[in-house]
Amino acid sequence: MEALTQRSKPVDRSPMTWLERIYLWNIFKGMLITFTHFFKKRATIKYPEQTRPFSPVFRGLHVLNRDEEGRERCTACGLCAVACPAEAITMEAAERLPDEENLYREEKYAAKYEINMLRCIFCGLCEDACPKDAIYLSETFAPANYSRKSFIYGKKDLLIPNPVTNKEEYDIAKGLIEKKKKKS
């Protein structure tokens, strides 16, 4: 079989020389190797302060989208719930009342929209299934929590901030501007 890489070296099985057999010189060489590691770049990143960038195709927490006027795009058609292989999505539809036209884009909207983050496998099929561009996966992941109940994310947790009334937070959520660092 042809070797896949050229990195493999043939094993040297010649009998050990006297210098090798007393072992001390090789210990010294080994200690030099470990010593050089003192000056090498650390592989660690200091996590909570420093984070690694995600790839642009990372599939993280779900976000329910709004249109440019700040109206929820979701019409509670249920295609995402059908597409979901983990059956993590539940929703309840409601009809839009005449004075709610500034809140919801279509006549029908999701009164309740819940995703169980413990069931979700973050496959992104809901994103694919949605005909209204209402749900997409962001680049963050669900933070740790103490109870199972808190992993069921409702509309409150999922909806993106309103771009009309709450522009700053919307831009932060979109990643258009940097989040202001907390003063510590």
Binding site: T34, H37, K41, R42, T44, K46
Partner: peptide, 9 residues
């Protein structure tokens, strides 16, 4: 340091 980490910090 030998293992290219920081150790307790």
């Amino acid at each position: 340091f030998i293992q290219d980490r920081y150790g307790p910090d």
